[in-house]
Write a protein that binds this DNA or RNA. Structure first.
Lengths: 344, 344
DNA sequence: GTGAAAGCGCTAACAT
DNA sequence: ATGTTAGCGCTTTCAC
């Protein structure tokens, strides 16, 4: 049998004060001076009765829900969230932890056919949103129009009014490619997802091209393989490359998950990594070192990305800072998936 | 500049009706008969003004938040959520999707030193909770006392009043072990996490022992390796086994992630899989087929687990069903990590 | 078929 | 230093 839920009025009565006083004490408001003994009385009543504030009611009255939204891509439009990719899981863990430390909870929702994310944000009175890896122009406009702070992660839409967190994607592409060149490769392919103008893949491709031209390696657009960032596409591409006699000697895959599939497909097609073909990934997620061969890859710090994103939305909500655009560094992690070629 | 948020009163005015009528229409209440033309007027006003209901206010008035909590383990007490393990990501994706289809959103929160999950549930007026892989007795008692429906996933606490979803863990352990026996193995180890009485590991161990005795294979407790369900422990164990001359010829790891680490460690220690030692995992997550060698493992259907969990909490909330305890089947997926031994 | 009004649990002027 | 009270945006009983 559910016991009656204690509310503020109960506490006020028990302590012999008004609800306003209880509210002041609970919220530790520095602009209200309360007698220490009153505080004590109230705190005891709270403890005695086991009072837990109702944040929904508080949100209604104060217009602050202390709820943050996290918007991540969906596997197919309007269905499941993309948490199978461990990148998002890692992001969420860190984001939630950072937000929780600052008194915010996280609401997770995808969008359905009849409901945009703006709808969700409004319905749930979200105080702020972090948008990862998607640029939904209409949603972002709507959020702005409704005064809901948003932070963009991994997006080059560059709405300069919004805070953002990215990594140095171009440099990542550059590092990966330059490394392959330094290992003697001269025909280097790139496997990537859709090349949208706001996406990270386009930046990584830029870095790739930049490295090639900087080192006088000829470019060949037939070596640019653009599909989806997925294990499946990687396999498919790997199989087809294995059959193709004039394939490059190395491939830079713009995500580990793509590299995993690629390696799988190449092996299935009868090739050995790195003996027959070299592969470099991007992310340095948990499984990169666990592959066979261990994956040489561009490392990014997802933990920091997520924590900073949380700080930035909260800053925007609490109006502590004007918007800022953070770019995190990347680095190359050398493992076993690249072969040193002897140049003739 | 944030435009004023439209509320129900605005709609009532615009349509020339009362807020009660608007409320009836929005909630499509079958016990209220409304003139079709009134409905039309109101719906048009809603469209014209772009009204989005405030679910927080609705929750306050109706005592239903349509918010579900998902409680998963934390990496260390009171810090980050365990989403780096892709099992939980997959679970969340499916759970959120199923819940969303039924009009519920998901709140994600870990617990901190000063705040139990019961506090979170109360503060946020959660309508129901799904608890995955943890048995927090005090929290569960508290939830019950406060009348908050909870569903237990992967827990053998067997609070029969609560709905639960598990898989046939014991059978999974049995299948894995019996398979190894059928492949000629006679010294078979098991690598597992903590053996708590409510946890899945204990059940899988039961299945392992059952298979051994059913086939007359002698048991040896020195072959039971109990640590944590983590990549790191797997590596550690693999390295130590590689050094140990009287190691078993096969190991059943009660989680893929453990098997990944184990294989890594064994290889590091100079052994070949499956030539020198065979490994079977549990989960059949995304990466199992991507290992080298591809992992033979017990398959469980995480998608169904999550969807059913969502259905069960919602049933409990809406009092459609009395509690039920669902057990999902498992199966063995044969790949390349087990060698057939010729028995002398 | 529709509306008036009380109330959900809280906050924040404004009094005192 | 503390209390009174009017909302916040919605639902729901009870009238009409």
């Amino acid at each position: 049998m559910a016991t009656k839920r204690i509310n503020m009025k109960d506490i006020a009565q028990e302590a012999g004060v008004s609800t306003a006083t209880v509210s002041y004490i609970i919220n530790k408001r520095s602009d209200q001076v309360i007698a220490p003994q009153t505080i004590k009385k109230v705190e005891e009543a709270i403890k005695r009765l086991g009072y837990v504030p109702n944040l929904g009611a508080r949100a209604l009255a104060s217009r602050h829900s202390h709820l943050l939204g996290l918007l991540i891509p969906q596997t197919e439009k309007e269905t499941k969230l993309m948490f199978s990719n461990s990148f998002y899981g890692t992001f969420l863990s860190n984001f939630e932890y950072e937000a929780r430390k600052k008194g915010y909870n996280i609401l997770i929702s995808g969008t359905s056919a009849d409901e945009s994310y703006l709808d969700v944000a409004q319905k749930r009175s979200l105080d702020g949103i972090v948008i990862v890896g998607v640029e939904l122009e209409s949603d972002i406009k709507g959020l702005k129009k409704n005064g809901i702070p948003a932070v963009l992660v991994d997006s080059y839409g560059m709405d300069k009014e919004l805070s953002s967190v990215t990594i140095d994607d171009e440099n990542g592409g550059f590092l990966a490619t330059e490394y392959l060149i330094s290992m003697g490769h001269r025909t280097i392919g790139i496997a990537t997802g859709y090349l949208t103008k706001e996406g990270v893949n386009t930046e990584r491709l830029k870095g790739y091209k930049h490295a090639l031209s900087a080192h006088g390696v000829p470019q060949d657009d037939t070596y640019v393989y653009s599909g989806t960032i997925s294990y499946e596409y990687g396999i498919e591409l790997g199989l087809s490359l294995a059959k193709s006699p004039d394939r490059p000697t190395a491939i830079f895959a713009t995500a580990d998950i793509l590299a995993f599939g690629l390696v799988k497909g190449l092996k299935k097609g009868g090739l050995k990594i790195p003996e027959d073909i070299s592969v470099v990934g991007f992310d340095d997620g948990f499984m990169a070192s666990n592959m066979e061969p261990a994956l040489t890859t561009v490392r990014q710090d997802v933990d920091s990305k997520a924590r900073i994103a949380a700080q930035l939305v909260i800053d925007a909500i609490e109006e502590k800072e004007s918007s800022s655009n953070i770019v995190l560094p990347v680095s190359l992690v050398e493992r076993e998936s690249v072969r040193k070629l002897v140049v003739n």
